[in-house]
């Protein structure tokens, strides 16, 4: 489904922020990427959707026609074709705050729409109805007409998920989907993401391991740009120390 192969990236200061990151994701998986801040979790996710230039390494992804295509080397149309199969759930601030909730959801399918049509009048009524269903799935249907900027953080996160659902991708990528949320909201969001992974795999980064144990099928631990753990979400104390370092592991 998705193969991440030896991603390497060096920042101008000479520091290696990604140092041979490799893992693969198959159907039905909910993969949690764990690590402390600055370990390279988010960067890995950005590399998968082709938002970051890499020094070396490859991301391969099963495309529409079933063949594996290389995201890392794709440009222009090919890159867009790969990207529209990946639903990215960023933190809430990635929504356009001045537009309505339903418009933000419908933007999920921009990659499939001819640009000319999207400039002229945006979206069709059929798409609006579908977007409403997607919002219903995250129980945001009553707020569909609201201006997005007036929502709370948890609500915005739901809208971001609705956008990804509406996009109908073959893979979901979520970047710290629960970072800014209180425990109850965080659990609710994960309860939305988990069923999605039954049809299409979900790869999500997390700062803390408590909830990954309950929701993920697999955990990938990253430390200083290297994969240090890949396996069951039931992490032992020493495995946690391997991901976070000893002092921080005691804290979490």
């Amino acid at each position: 489904m998705l193969v991440v192969d030896a991603l390497t990236k060096t920042v101008p200061g000479g520091r290696r922020v990604l140092d041979g990151v490799s893992f693969s994701v198959g159907a039905g998986e909910f993969v949690g990427i764990l690590g402390s801040s600055g370990a390279g979790k988010s960067l890995t996710l950005r590399a998968i959707s082709g938002l970051t230039e890499l020094d070396s390494g490859e991301v391969r992804f099963a495309c529409e026609d079933g063949t594996m295509c290389c995201v890392t080397r794709a440009r222009g149309k090919a890159l867009r074709a790969a990207r529209r199969q990946m639903g990215v759930i960023f933190q809430g601030l990635h929504l356009v705050k001045r537009m309505t909730v339903i418009e933000n959801v419908m933007m999920g399918r921009l990659g499939f729409i001819h640009p000319l049509r999207s400039w002229l009048y945006g979206f069709t009524d059929a798409e609006a109805r579908e977007a409403l269903e997607a919002l219903d799935q995250v129980s945001m249907k009553p707020l569909a007409g609201r201006i997005t900027g007036s929502l709370s953080g948890g609500e915005m996160q739901r809208v971001a998920i609705a956008r990804a659902i509406f996009q109908r991708p073959r893979l979901y990528l979520a970047d710290e989907p629960i970072a800014a949320l209180d425990p109850r909201n965080a659990e609710a969001i994960l309860n939305l993401l988990q069923p999605l992974s039954r049809h299409n795999p979900v790869v999500s980064t997390f700062h803390q391991p408590e909830l990954t144990r309950r929701f993920c099928t697999r955990v990938v631990g990253i430390r200083e740009g290297r994969v240090v753990y890949d396996g069951s979400p039931e992490l032992s104390r020493s495995e946690l120390a391997g991901i976070y370092g000893i002092r921080e592991a005691q804290a979490v």
Partner: peptide, 14 residues
């Protein structure tokens, strides 16, 4: 019901 209408959008822009 649906707080969006393609026709209204088109008419408004036109």
């Amino acid at each position: 019901m649906v707080p969006y209408s393609a026709r209204r959008q088109l008419v408004r822009r036109a």
